[in-house]
Structures are given as C-alpha cells and as structure tokens.
Simulated assay, not measured.
Amino acid sequence: MKAKITVGVLTVVLILYFVLIGDKALIFIREGTVVGWGLAVAAVLLPIVGAVLLAFELRFGWRTQHMGRELAAQGGLPEASDLPTTPSGRIDKKAAAERFDVFRHEAEAAPDDWRSWFRLADAYDVAGDRKRARGSMRKAIELRYAKETS
C-alpha cells in the first residue's frame, strides 16, 4: 500500500510540474523571440516525453503486479524470505546465486513460459542485478500479454 501511495503522490507532483512548465511555455511564446519560441518548444516537449515515460513505467508496474498476483495464486511465486541472510539482514550471495542458477535453467528449458521469465527476473533482483531483472521482466510481460493482443 505504501508503494501505491508513493506512486500516486509522485504522479500528482509530476502532473503539477507539467502544468507549471506548460504555463512557462506560454510565457516564452508571448515573448515572441526566436529564443522564446525555442524555449517554449523545449518546455512543451520535455513534459510530453516525461508523460510518455511515466505511462510506460506505470504500465510496467501494473502488469508486473498483476502477473505476480497471478503467479502467487498458482503457487509458483518464489519467496525471498526462504533464503538465508547475513547478520546484517542481506540475502546471502551464495544462496542467491544458487537460486539464480535454478531459475536460469528453468527459463532456458521453457523460453516461451512467462512464469519462468518472471521467476528469473525475481532471481536477478534478489541477486542485485536490477538491469537484467527488468529485462527478464519485460520478456515475461511480452510473453504473458502477447496472447491477449493476438
């Protein structure tokens, strides 16, 4: 719930920023100079790019959350709490690597199953490789939602 509130607050702040920057663009246009027009175009394009990126990130988050719930309902969602931790509370790297190997082999064995890619993304995340975790999750989303769009 805390994450949803944070996303909501950040989205509202970003929308407020878009409105304020749009107002500045109008001021630049009223200046009537070439520089003013250039700044106005930039002030309009940047929020548009930001809004598109925000929409993509929200869609990614919603789909990931939906898939996680679906996988949990099927009993196929791995639990990070099952892994041993160091005295500081971090997940043991050796255990994370072993788990990663299991899910990597699963994804290699079933490359068209979104569930295996979701679990691989989770394993990457637990291992601390966020970039590859997002890439694997994108693959899972592509596989999961390709069936609905075709």
Rank of each mutant, 00 (worst) to 15 (best):
E106S: 12
R138I: 05
E148M: 14
R138A: 12
K24I: 09
E148I: 15
F100Y: 07
A55K: 12
T64M: 02
A97W: 01
S88K: 04
S150P: 02
F100E: 06
A133M: 00
M67D: 03
R144K: 07
T149D: 14
A121K: 11
D112R: 08
L26Y: 10
P87D: 12
R69Y: 00
I141G: 01
L10M: 05
G32Y: 01
G135F: 05
A42S: 14
A72F: 01
Y124I: 07
F118W: 04
K24A: 11
H66Y: 00
P78K: 04
H66Q: 05
I48L: 15
L20F: 11
L58P: 00
A109W: 10
V13M: 14
T64Q: 01
K4P: 02
G36F: 05
L20D: 10
V126A: 09
R134H: 08
P47G: 14
R144D: 02
M137R: 02
L16S: 15
L83D: 02
F60M: 04
Y17N: 13
R104C: 05
A97G: 01
K4W: 04
A127W: 02
M1R: 08
M1S: 12
L26C: 10
D112K: 07
G128I: 10
L46N: 08
D113G: 07
G22K: 06
H66A: 11
P78I: 06
V13K: 12
P84T: 03
D23M: 15
P87E: 13
F103A: 01
K2R: 11
V44P: 14
A3S: 03
E70H: 01
T64L: 00
A43I: 13
A72N: 02
S81Y: 01
I21S: 11
T6A: 09
A127T: 14
A40G: 11
R63I: 02
V44A: 15
A121N: 11
E57L: 08
L10P: 03
V35Y: 12
E98T: 05
K131C: 09
F28I: 10
W37M: 15
L10T: 07
I91T: 03
F28G: 08
A95H: 00
R99S: 11
F118R: 10
I48H: 07
W37N: 14
A72R: 00
D23E: 13
R138N: 15
Q65D: 02
A146L: 03
I48W: 08
R115Y: 06
S88N: 06
E98P: 01
S88V: 13
G75V: 09
R30H: 12
G36E: 14
Y145S: 10
L16N: 13
A121H: 08
L83A: 01
